[in-house]
């Protein structure tokens, strides 16, 4: 049971961790689980089942290795749980344009330094603006 617990917790963390690092776009394995899932319940469920198994093993065995495994698992699982439930929430804010409103005009430069300017309400090719949240 202790081995199963270790495999569930650290195996899952390894798969998701490698998936995030490698930008695997699979919702179950990597970045998608963290990026798209508002709360990745499957991930949390597997991790906490693993921790529960470690706790049961300790209750049954009451030996030092079982205690060590439980302590080893509880910190990363608690951190991941905090991160997805609380730590990654953005402060409340209100988008000031709604569907049907005019998109604001702008005068910016692109990646080559070329000026890109559009006035509010000006005709243009339809465009999707993705505001990147992160560092590159």
């Amino acid at each position: 049971m202790t081995w199963l617990s270790l495999i569930l917790v650290f195996g899952t963390l390894a798969v998701v961790g490698v998936g995030v690092a490698a930008e695997v776009p699979d919702p179950r394995l990597g970045a998608g689980e963290i990026i798209y899932g508002r709360v990745p319940w499957l991930l949390l469920g597997v991790l906490w089942v693993g921790v529960t198994l470690a706790a049961v093993a300790l209750f049954r065995g009451r030996r030092l290795p079982e205690l060590g495994v439980l302590l080893l698992e509880i910190a990363p699982v608690a951190y991941v749980t905090w991160y997805v439930l609380v730590g990654s929430a953005v402060p409340p804010h209100t988008l000031t344009v709604d569907v049907g409103d005019a998109f604001p005009g702008y005068a910016l430069v692109d990646q080559d330094g070329a000026r890109r300017e559009v006035a509010s309400g000006e005709r243009r090719a339809p465009a999707l603006y993705i505001f990147y949240r992160g560092g590159w």
Partner: peptide
């Protein structure tokens, strides 16, 4: 993310 049509409307 915001999708804007050809008339500049969200």
């Amino acid at each position: 993310a915001v999708l804007v049509d050809g008339r500049g409307v969200v």
